[in-house]
């Protein structure tokens, strides 16, 4: 791995531990994708699935008691208000995934556009954008998120946009360096010789190449956004309405609850962990496939 004076970090896969680099995605990738799909579908269809109402005290039957251990009746047990933890975890995925998705789409759109333009145009525009990225990266990301949410409201959109802003600089840097790497190639010169407009060169020649590292970054970034939302939730600063994995874990981590009924926290922790792991693994495999040796830390 090497570093540049602006602090960009690139990680190079080294050694024989990289099995079969760049040819196949492998089984692990597809298992990860399958998990992500299952979680997403379950979250999207949660209200129509045959599971308990997440807010029903005592479960759908109204007969469950508080803090019962996982059983056939309540897979992940019940919480302090006798609500079904499994149902709450599945429903909690809704906000977490939406926040993660919106955030990374925003990060890709804004960061990607800025990075590609900066890498293609260079000159003063590049210097301004690069400085902007450095400034954004000078705030520890959670601190920046706290700052923004403290000034605005804590609606779903605000939180998602805030976490998207955190993604702009890391995404932008990777997009910029990938663009620079490709813009120097002769096929871009050839496109100019043909008489392609700058727009066409960016869209048809550069974008397909820059999209490869972006794809893996999107998966990693989505994981980061979901985790960041959890961090905000833990500080009591995430979305004011609805439950998220972070809020569920926070509920379950109150000392008394954690002592008496650890499953209240462990169930959402397990879901969060598996999902983040799946996103990380899929992103990592995709990065190796593209043989793109950059990863934003």
């Amino acid at each position: 791995m090497t570093s540049t004076d602006t602090g960009t970090v690139t990680v190079t896969e080294v050694g024989a531990s990289t099995p079969d680099p760049g040819t196949r995605l492998g089984r692990l990738f597809w298992v990860s994708v399958a998990w992500i799909v299952i979680v997403t579908v379950a979250a999207a269809l949660a209200p129509w699935l045959p599971i308990d109402d997440p807010d029903a005290i005592g479960g759908d039957s109204g007969l469950d008691t508080a803090l019962t251990a996982p059983s056939w009746n309540a897979w992940f047990g019940t919480d302090t208000l006798a609500r079904d933890v499994f149902a709450r975890t599945v429903h909690g995925a809704r906000v977490s995934l939406v926040v993660g998705l919106v955030a990374i789409v925003l990060g890709l759109a804004v960061g990607g556009t800025l990075g590609i333009l900066a890498g293609y145009v260079r000159g003063a525009f590049d210097r301004v954008v690069t400085f902007l990225f450095v400034v954004l990266l000078s705030f520890p990301s959670l601190v920046l998120a706290i700052l923004i949410t403290s000034l605005l409201d804590r609606g779903l959109v605000t939180i998602a946009v805030t976490l998207g802003v955190l993604g702009i600089a890391p995404v932008g840097r990777v997009a910029r360096s990938a663009t620079i790497q490709y813009a120097e190639r002769d096929f871009v010169r050839a496109a100019r010789m043909i008489g392609s407009s700058h727009r066409r060169i960016i869209v048809r020649e550069l974008l397909p190449n820059v999209a490869a590292p972006m794809g893996s970054l999107a998966l990693l970034g989505m994981a980061l956004a979901i985790v960041a939302e959890g961090g905000l939730a833990f500080l009591g600063l995430s979305v004011s309405e609805g439950s998220t994995w972070g809020k569920l874990i926070l509920d379950g981590s109150q000392t008394q609850t954690l002592t008496d009924a650890p499953w209240v926290a462990f169930a959402p922790i397990a879901m969060l962990f598996m999902t983040v792991l799946a996103l990380n693994l899929a992103g990592d495999r995709l990065r190796r496939l593209g043989d793109v040796r950059t990863s934003a830390i």
Partner: peptide, 22 residues
């Protein structure tokens, strides 16, 4: 390393607190 990195710090904190403190 993959497993540890996928575990967010607040979740790790809760787990460690449960195991080692509680």
């Amino acid at each position: 390393t993959f497993l540890v990195v996928a575990l967010p710090n607040f979740a790790l904190g809760v787990l460690l607190k449960y195991v080692f403190a509680i």
